[in-house]
Simulated scan of single mutants.
Amino acid sequence: MKRIAILGSTGSIGQQALQVVDQFAGEIRPVALAAGRNRELLLRQVKKYKPQLVSVSKEEDAVWLREVLGRESGTEVYCGNEGLLATATFPEADTVLTAVSGAIGLKPTMAAIRCGKNIALANKETLVAAGELVVSLAQRHKAAIMPVDSEHSAVWQCLNGENCEDVSQIILTASGGPFRLFKREKMAGITPAMALEHPNWKMGPKITVDSATLMNKGLEVIEARWLFNIDYNRIKVVIHPESIIHSMVEFNDGSVMAQLAVPDMRLPIQYALTYPGRPASNVPKLQWPIRSLTFETPDLERFPALSLAYEAGRAGGTMPAVMNAANEVAVAAFLAGKIGFMAIPKVVEEVMHGHNATKYGTLEEILEADGWARRKADELCAGTASFTL
């Protein structure tokens, strides 16, 4: 029996993870769940899965949940950052699925690693902001980091049994998002509703917008650098509109391995939770023959966020954390209607270029850089006349 804790159980990845759990009832059990503000959905999850511990973001929601569940439920209820940490370090869990969005996932993931728990990682920001710190911590505590992102899961699968020294390059695929064919002048009119209509994937709002700007792929480039110990010059991004090939690995002899599947997050979630097995799944299978697989070079003029991510990764130190924090603030401002779509990378660039990257040795140093970047980005988004196109 594998016992899991899920950080972000009411989000897109968390809900799909519980669908995987449903398929393997008796083999995988969720013993701790942490949610945000969707207390009604969390209540339904508690009644169905009967976890021993749950957490919500707000104290008033925790009070409500305790009252509804009653004293005899057997479920402890926490809230806030304390609740996230309690979920991540819950002694009964052997694997923690980090599926919260943003840098908020960093502290609880590191706390879980310190407890020697294996990490099913669906939170890019953890490795983007603190990759060197997280990877070294996992090595010291012998905690496995199993990628849940479809792209990194694909690379992981392609490298299974291979010698990493034989890798020539990693090729991450991107759908191109909903605006792949938009002319630059048309992109000025993009609304949040338009950006949230991803052509292939069903995801949460933040990651969906990141996919539309290609920042999501930039974050994945930095994540891949730490997951697979490979330099940025050997990580390539190609646009693949069909989202059938989830990523590829090219080897020194010229051979290329690719992982293909329908675009359904339940498959990489299941692989992480059942590794090294490959039991039958409920995910639809590819229909053969596949009519076409096409590839394009990313347009970095229309989608500069990808270039900014490479720039931040190569700068190293605190710069990726600063880039990520600025992007989180800018995306939130866009979704709130405060800035335009094309202003998102402009805000990120402005914040990055106002920061001198420094080496870090502690989580506190990363969080300090993160906080500075958020304040700077907030200031820019509050006076956006020069950024709104």
Rank of each mutant, 00 (worst) to 15 (best):
327 N>T: 11
318 T>P: 13
327 N>M: 07
336 A>H: 10
298 P>S: 01
328 E>Q: 12
340 G>W: 10
309 A>D: 04
306 L>I: 07
320 P>V: 04
348 V>E: 05
311 E>Y: 11
324 N>I: 11
339 I>W: 02
306 L>H: 05
297 T>D: 00
303 F>E: 11
308 L>E: 03
308 L>Y: 13
330 A>Q: 04
305 A>D: 03
332 A>F: 08
301 E>P: 04
347 V>K: 06
342 M>S: 04
303 F>W: 12
299 D>S: 05
298 P>G: 04
316 G>D: 09
319 M>F: 04
349 E>C: 06
322 V>P: 13
304 P>H: 09
312 A>L: 12
319 M>R: 11
330 A>S: 11
316 G>W: 05
299 D>L: 07
335 L>C: 01
313 G>T: 07
298 P>T: 05
338 K>C: 01
330 A>C: 03
330 A>W: 01
294 T>N: 11
343 A>N: 01
306 L>E: 06
302 R>V: 03
306 L>D: 02
301 E>D: 11
325 A>E: 13
310 Y>H: 07
324 N>A: 09
303 F>Q: 12
308 L>S: 09
317 G>R: 14
309 A>H: 12
317 G>C: 08
327 N>G: 06
311 E>C: 08
338 K>A: 13
300 L>K: 10
317 G>S: 09
294 T>Y: 00
330 A>I: 05
344 I>A: 09
295 F>D: 02
339 I>T: 09
294 T>A: 00
344 I>E: 06
312 A>Y: 10
314 R>Y: 09
305 A>I: 07
309 A>S: 05
319 M>L: 15
299 D>R: 12
302 R>A: 09
332 A>G: 14
308 L>F: 14
318 T>G: 13
320 P>I: 06
296 E>M: 11
329 V>K: 15
301 E>S: 07
309 A>L: 01
330 A>N: 08
334 F>A: 03
330 A>R: 02
316 G>Q: 05
337 G>C: 04
299 D>A: 01
322 V>H: 14
318 T>S: 14
342 M>K: 10
315 A>E: 15
295 F>W: 00
339 I>D: 04
294 T>G: 00
313 G>S: 03
327 N>Y: 10
302 R>D: 01
